[in-house]
Design a protein around this nucleic acid. Structure first.
Length: 940
RNA sequence: GCGGGUGUGGUGAAAUUGGUAGACACGCCAGACUUAGGAUCUGGUGCUUCGGCGUGGGGGUUCGAGUCCCUCCACCCGCACCA
């Protein structure tokens, strides 16, 4: 009987649906296991063969864990807010919800035909109001929380209000900007305010003033901030959405702009986000990328008093504060450099220098972020101003230059040309002094960044190695009141507002200009007449009138929407309790399912998604809504599947195509040819002529055997290269089981690899062969199999189990092929005791066929719930071992010996063997090394 | 520049703690059955001057190295004036 994969797959998919075979519920009797895929954005193009790779691996693992007795949660959903649907809406006027729905349906069809074991009853869509009402709720909680830097956790804002009314801000340490009070609009805080206020101050404030003050401490807060504005997209972007000064999506230019935006105080979590990385089972590269993104560095802040014209401290008390990781090089400071945007530039600049400084600032402002990043040439101007060195009292000239970034540290540096390469280049370029501070190092030739160098010309630190002077230097600045030990971070608070339509609306209204949380309703998207920003640059939602809003409270609604990462930061929690309309996820359920045990997805989300969901998870944990503070315990990043393009070679100016091997004899033009017209690099000539009218009368110069061989190359899959392979075609031709096995067989999951359809027939053949084992000519089913058959099966059990445990998905297929080949070669009837375990081993990879074979071998119930077989040691141990015997490391002959022999006995047998004497050719044996069960090496 | 990774047959790749390098599969070659199907089955297939040589190059440790150490090279990914 043939392997009729179409009938088999259709039958079992229907049965599974009928029996709700993949539905899971909490079950305290069984251990849980949570396997999660990064959910897709449902794009209009549908899936190509690269997309399901990770899904297949996670599906295999989920099924394996189910066989192992775990209660497995394995859900799927859609990250369905996003730009493409919105841009399609802008072009066509069609509501993005319609586009999104269509795309989801297509995805769902494609996913279903692959036979994944998703519990579809748990599907989530981030753009569904029943989902995003809880995204809004989490935002609301973030809005109503502050971060206690002493307790290192988020707390309700009401507790901060209580603290203020009891003691002002004296015994409370909320995370906030260093000079959070700057920019407050009300009179309590004058020019000399230092950030402290009393309970009386607080009590004297009115509601609006209190709200304005509290806004400085909320975890989700409104602030004027310099943002990445993308004029082409009409929206702001987060730092990780900007690559090389261009938008990640669309590649449009991005400029800096100050706007009032919702922000997320992720910086409060910087240390925890960094520290808990150590316990995650993620790749080093992802963890390193996160560490770098957070960018913690240790050092000191040092303040330099601004000098007046006479070289005395300026009466205003103004100071330039810098952050440095090398306070030990303080004696080497030759000049200061401020970012052009630094607030003190204006007052430091002398009249004589003003024209140059203004010109430089203007030029820097004109440059886009991209230009500024790309331009590594040295530029800068002297301001004319000076500051006073806190250690030596010397006057230090102040420059501005755009290699100093306004957004990092304090936007100002102390330049130590002897110890820093950029400072050194700057000094050389402008012919500034390079004070020598390292013993025996000529810093006129290059900067010295070696921390083991010995200091000189450094007062009381002379003779110390730089590393050792570090802590002395920090102590010194601290005791002299001109600085402090400091940790600095690269990570910024995240901008959370987007000027888009197709995103979560904020649950925020304004009353008298004061933002307030809406808790009594879900704020759904209003209808608008166009999906573009308004004429005066307001977000698309501002087009909606009061009546257009399904929910409208207060004087005005917030018209920004949330960024793409909002919904994806917590979706793994919603799967646990997807239909709850009382809370985002019942605590009992999240306690049961807990962390995602295995997360599978591409590595392209290393900074954005992973960082943000870790942040939200920690927050929800702080507030007691869930019981764990890291979302993804272990993670596998699958590699990209590349396309294999085929080419034909047209002789210039003709319609004649020459086969690959002879193309060098002609002047040819290489053209992509649709891979569907090519098999094993041989072109289907008729198909090619029919492909396009221009090729209808094409001539060919062929190989000797009359075939046309195409050229090939591995490239990214894309429509324009005609190398896109959709799963649909392959499922149609070979079946889902074959495709699943083949994608796993292709190579290590984490590696990038070219897609090559040639190999799929081998895997398909394997499934046919295994099918034949169960439906052979004399298909009567004995209870017992032969000893030999059981040895083969148990060897496979051991290998497959071991490989799955270490996520070696590709070698499992090989192991099964070996077992099937060996069993086929036995040419004997197999019994249930061999066929049933074999069906279970197959089931994670080829679930449809496994069900069929399970039934054929009279297995009880569904194979899905069959217990994973255990490899019995008695079948694994051999009683004879064939030892390769090597002489000086070169294998010369084989020697079969009883497995029970000791090492000494093995050695004796080797010494006695006549072939040994022949190999020695008279030489003496110096040593014999016996590795029991493996090899014998004779050293002569 | 910094961080992470990868280099093994014609191709995708195996080799988990150092122990017969190339399993499994594709492709290719030969044969069988067929009579022109890209079907099926069987056998062969790293290179070789048949001594050997072979895991990017060079060196080292070891009885023994794809695997460990040092060094160099190539390619891929991420970050990038981060003080």
């Amino acid at each position: 009987m043939d392997y009729d994969f179409r009938a088999i797959e259709a039958t079992w998919q229907r049965k599974w649906k009928e029996t709700e075979a993949y539905k899971v519920t909490e079950d305290s009797e069984r251990p849980k296991f949570y396997v999660l895929d990064m959910f897709p954005y449902p794009s209009g193009a549908g899936l190509h063969v690269g997309h399901p790779l990770g899904y297949i691996a996670s599906d295999v693992f989920a099924r394996y864990k189910r066989h192992k007795g775990y209660n497995v949660l394995h859900p799927m959903g859609y990250d369905s807010f996003g730009l493409p649907a919105e841009q399609y809406a802008i072009q066509t006027g069609q509501h993005p919800a319609i586009t999104t729905e269509e795309n989801i349906n297509r995805y769902r069809d494609q996913l279903e035909q692959l036979g994944f074991c998703y519990d579809w009853s748990r599907e989530v869509r981030t753009s569904d109001p029943s989902y995003y009402r809880w995204t809004q709720w989490i935002f609301g909680e973030l809005f109503e929380s502050w971060y206690d830097t002493q307790a290192q956790r988020a707390r309700p804002i009401s507790e901060l209000e209580s603290a203020f009314s009891e003691n002002g801000n004296f015994n409370v340490h909320p995370a906030c900007h260093e000079q959070w009070w700057q920019g407050l609009s009300f009179p309590h805080f004058g020019a000399h305010f230092d950030g402290s206020f009393t309970a009386t101050d607080w009590d004297s404030m009115n509601m609006a003033e209190r709200q304005e003050l509290l806004m400085c401490f909320r975890i989700a807060y409104l602030a004027d901030s310099e943002v990445n504005w993308c004029p082409a997209l009409g929206t702001v972007l987060a730092n990780d959405e900007v690559k090389d000064g261009l938008s990640e999506r669309g590649g449009h230019p991005v400029v800096k702009k100050t706007m009032r935006q919702w922000m997320m105080r992720i910086t409060a979590y910087a240390d925890r986000l960094l520290n808990s990385l150590d316990h995650l089972e993620w790749t080093d590269s992802v963890k390193e990328a996160q560490r770098h993104w957070i960018g913690r560095s240790e050092g000191a802040s040092v303040r330099f008093a601004v000098a007046n014209r006479d070289g005395q401290p300026d009466p205003s008390g103004a100071e330039v504060e810098v952050f440095t990781t090398r306070p030990d090089t303080l004696h080497g400071v030759a000049f200061m450099v401020l970012a052009p945007e630094h607030t003190l530039v204006e007052s430091l600049t002398t009249e004589a220098c003003r024209a140059d400084v203004d010109a430089y600032i203007e030029a820097a402002g004109m440059k886009s972020e991209r230009d500024r990043q790309g331009d590594k040439s040295i530029s800068g101007v002297f301001t004319g101003g000076q500051v006073i060195h806190p250690l030596t009292g010397a006057l230090v000239p102040v420059w501005i230059a755009d290699y100093v970034l306004a957004g990092y540290g304090t936007g100002a540096i102390m330049a130590v040309p002897a110890g820093d390469e950029r400072d050194w280049r700057f000094a050389k370029h402008f012919d500034l002094p390079i004070p020598a501070i390292f013993e025996g190092v000529d810093t006129n030739e290059a900067a010295c960044t070696d921390k083991n160098a010995t200091l000189c010309n450094s007062g009381e630190w002379n003779g110390l190695r730089a590393v050792d002077a570090l802590s002395r230097a920090i102590e010194w600045v601290e005791t002299h009141g001109c600085g402090a030990r400091k940790r600095n971070y690269r990570i910024r608070d995240a901008v959370f507002s987007r000027q888009r339509y197709w995103g979560e609306p904020f649950p925020i209204m304004y009353e008298g200009g004061i933002p307030k949380r809406i808790t009594d309703a879900t704020v759904t998207l209003p209808q608008v007449d166009a999906y573009l920003p308004t004429e005066d640059g307001e977000p698309p939602l501002a087009r909606a009138s009061r009546e257009d809003w399904p929910v409208f409270r207060g004087d005005a609604m917030e018209t920004n929407t949330m960024p793409g990462w909002a919904g994806s930061s917590w979706y793994f929690l919603r799967y646990m309790d997807p239909h709850n309309n009382v809370t985002f996820c019942d605590r009992e359920k999240s306690d049961y399912w807990g962390q995602v045990d295995l997360y599978v997805g591409g590595a392209e989300h290393t900074t954005g998604h992973l960082l943000y969901s870790r942040f939200w998870t920690k927050f929800l944990c702080d507030r007691g809504y869930i019981g764990f503070d890291e979302p993804f315990k272990s993670m596998i990043n699958q590699g990209m599947i590349l396309g294999r393009s085929n080419f034909v070679y047209r002789i210039q100016g003709t319609n004649t195509f020459v086969t690959a091997s002879q193309r060098k004899d002609h002047h040819t033009q290489r053209l992509h040819v649709d891979i569907n017209l090519v098999e094993n690099d041989k072109l289907d000539l008729e198909g090619f002529r029919a492909w396009r009218t221009e090729f209808a009368d094409a001539d060919f110069i062929l190989e000797d055997d009359g075939t046309y061989i195409c050229g090939h190359e591995v490239e990214k899959m894309s429509k324009s290269k005609y190398n896109v392979q959709t799963p649909d075609d392959l499922v149609e031709r070979y079946g889902a089981d074959t495709l699943r096995c083949y994608e796993m067989f292709l190579g290590p999951l984490t590696q990038h690899k070219p897609w090559d359809t040639q190999g799929i027939s081998g895997v398909h053949n394997f499934l046919r062969k295994i099918h034949r084992l169960y439906t052979g000519d004399n298909a009567d089913l004995p209870e017992k199999s032969s000893e030999e058959a059981l040895r083969i099966v148990h060897k496979a059990i051991a290998k497959v189990t071991d490989d799955l445990d270490r996520h070696a998905f590709n070698t499992v297929v090989s192991a099964l092929m070996i077992a099937v080949n060996d069993l086929g070669a036995l040419n004997t009837n197999l019994g249930r005791d061999a066929l049933q375990p074999l069906a279970v081993l197959l089931s994670p990879y080829a679930p449809h066929l496994a069900e069929e074979l399970w039934a054929a071998s009279k297995g009880p119930g569904s194979v899905l719930d069959a217990t994973w077989p255990e490899a019995l040691q008695s079948y694994l141990t051999e009683d004879q071992i064939t030892y390769p015997v090597s002489f000086n490391g070169k294998v010369r002959f084989q020697l079969a010996l009883s497995a029970s022999l000791s090492a000494q006995e093995v050695e004796a047998s080797v010494r006695q063997d006549e072939r040994t004497a022949a190999q020695l050719a008279g030489k003496d044996i110096r040593k014999v090394i016996v590795v029991p069960g493996r090899i014998v090496n004779v050293v002569a």
